[in-house]
Amino acid sequence: MKNKLSRLAVPYVVWMALFVVAPIIMMVIYAFSASNGGFTLNNFVKMGAYAEVFIRSFKLALIATAICLLVGYPVSYFMSKEGPRFQRMAMVLIMLPMWMNFLLRTYSWMTILENNGLLNQLFQKIGLIALYNRMTGADLSYFPMMNTQGAVVLGMVYNYLPFMILPIYSVIIKLDGSLIEAARDLGAGSATVFRRVILPLSLPGVLSGITMVFVPAVSTFAISQMLGGGTELLLGDLIEQQFMGGAYNPQLGAAISLVMMVIVVVCMLVMNRFGEGEEQAVML
């Protein structure tokens, strides 16, 4: 019986081997190869020149993840306290942008943030820019918002926020109400109930939310290209350039990818170890 069932898994194993394991192996081989095919560590040595990009990528991804957490946790928490109709409605609203194409969504932000985009026009109309000029003595005709790190972070938060809200929400909604009653019964006011019961028990959701936001954010290239205007180069852009752009160097690209992957995996392992106790809590 068990053998019969495990035979059904064969196609998936083959699929995984072909499309997950094989590419990783190829990436590793490429990373240690010179352009003529021989073994070299040169790709990793060259990477030192791009330390700035590494730092910027991780910094922006961290900021975006932190903002997603700060916004997403309260949203999930208060959503879970509302009635079922409100919850369904809110869920649709959160998911709605995701039904639209990713590039289209990000392009829309360009028209909003541009120098003569919607936001700047609004600021002009309500006199905010004039006010700012008068107060600081500057002479701006618009606020520069496009092609800044802020715009890139905004793009990340906008695109990845649902991935933070959903896992946290689904953990909080499943919390046993009698645990909260028990805590209140034992003398805990609302703040203490939250700090000592709800927060620790929702940590697994927080951890998977962080993972699901941080990983795509650290490797994105479309967002930084569109909203960063190519001036705020991220790891994703760097890698893309090695494969598609003028700086064609797939060996270097593979090496950068490999290092990024290792850093991300290490981060996740550390974080999961940290949340291990709570992981059991959810299993219950």
Binding site: S178, E181, A182, A183, D185, G187
Partner: peptide, 29 residues
């Protein structure tokens, strides 16, 4: 409110805190 009453409850399904061990569960209050 419940947390200001000198009354404690043993709940039907115990409602023990799964993220705390036995000692910390008892020490909670």
């Amino acid at each position: 409110p419940p947390h200001k009453r000198q009354i404690n409850t043993v709940f039907q399904k115990y409602a023990l805190f799964p993220h705390l061990n036995v000692f910390e569960n008892i020490a909670f209050g």
